[in-house]
Simulated assay, not measured.
Amino acid sequence: MDTQAQHTERDRSSTPAHGAGEEGSRSVRRSRLSRRGGPRRSPMSLRAAGLTGAACAVFLLLLSHFVLQPFQIPSGSMEPTLQVGDRVLVNKLAYGSGAGPRRGDVIVFDGTGSFVQEEVTENPVSSVVREGLAVFGLAEPAETDFVKRVVGVGGDRVVCCDKGGRVEVNGVPVDETYLHPDGVPSEVAFDIVVPEGTLWVMGDHRSNSRDSRDHLGSPGGGMVPVDMVIGRVDWIGWPVGRASGIDTTEAFSGVPDAPPGGAHG
C-alpha cells in the first residue's frame, strides 16, 4: 500500500500544472531560436532595406551633382586657408540667378581648356569608382579640377607688383592677409587685363601654386571661363577639428569696378 501511494504521489508531481505545458513549449521554442541565431529576416524586410539604401544613394548623388559637392584638397596650394586632406563642401548654387564669382571667393573649377590644354582620358571603370567615392569626399578630385582664389574678374587690370610688393587690382594695392606667411604675393611679374566672362585665379600659397601665372603663355592666357566654375567653397567639413565656414575676405573691399570696356594700362 505504501508503495502504491508513493507511485501515485510521484505521478501527480510529474504531471504539469495548468499552463505549465504551454510555458515549457515556449521555452523550447526560445532555446531553438537562440540556437538558430534568432528569427530570420523576411525577404520583404530585406527588399525594403535594399530600396531604402538605394534611395539614399540616389539622393546623395543628386545632392552632390546639383547642390553641395564634397571635394578633397589634394595639395598645399591653398594653405593656410585649406590644408592637404581637408574635405570641403562646394556650394553649386552660389552663382545662380546671374550672380558670378567675386574677387576673394575660393572656387573649384574645371580647368579643361585653361589649366589643362589636352582632354584627360580616364578608364571608365576607375572613373565611376572615383565619382562614387567623391560623393562622400573620399576620393581625390579629377585631374582637371582645381581649387583657387579669384583675384580678378572680367574687365579688371591685375598687376604685380607695386613698390610694396603687393598685387594691384584696378590701381589699388591689395593687402592679402590670407596668404601663406612663408611666401610673397608673387615672384612672377605680370600685368594683365581680364577678358569679360573669365577669371584670374591664384593660390594662397603663391610659391607652391600652379595658377593663372603659370599659364600666361598658354591659349587663354591663364584665364578661367566663368562657365567652367563648379561652385564656391563655403565650408570645411572634415577633419572635425577644422570644421568651419570659409571666412569672407575684405581684402578687395576698396577695389573699384573696372570701367566699361575694361581697365587699360
Rank of each mutant, 00 (worst) to 15 (best):
P260S: 15
G241L: 06
A94S: 12
L179S: 08
V158M: 03
I230N: 05
P181D: 10
E168H: 03
G24H: 14
L68R: 11
A20M: 09
S97G: 02
G19Y: 07
R32H: 05
G100D: 07
D175T: 08
D2W: 10
K148H: 04
G197D: 11
P239N: 05
L216Y: 03
R32G: 05
T8N: 09
L61Y: 03
T52L: 15
L61F: 04
L68V: 06
S75K: 03
P185T: 08
L60V: 10
D182K: 12
V125T: 11
G111E: 14
H7P: 00
S218K: 12
D234C: 07
G132I: 01
G217F: 01
S27M: 08
F190M: 12
G76F: 02
V229K: 00
G183S: 13
K163E: 15
I107F: 12
W235T: 10
L216W: 02
L179W: 07
R149T: 03
T112N: 10
L33W: 00
E23Q: 14
R130H: 08
G171L: 09
V153E: 08
L46C: 00
L133R: 13
H65S: 13
D234P: 01
P70W: 10
S75Y: 07
V116K: 08
S77R: 02
D86L: 03
P256G: 06
M44V: 15
V108W: 08
A55P: 07
R35H: 09
A142F: 03
L68Y: 12
A17H: 09
S186F: 03
V106L: 14
A99M: 01
M228W: 04
R102D: 14
E118F: 00
A20R: 13
V158I: 12
S14T: 02
T144G: 00
T81S: 15
L68H: 06
R32S: 01
E118W: 02
D182P: 01
A251R: 02
R130V: 10
R41P: 06
P80Q: 04
V229H: 03
V233G: 09
S25G: 01
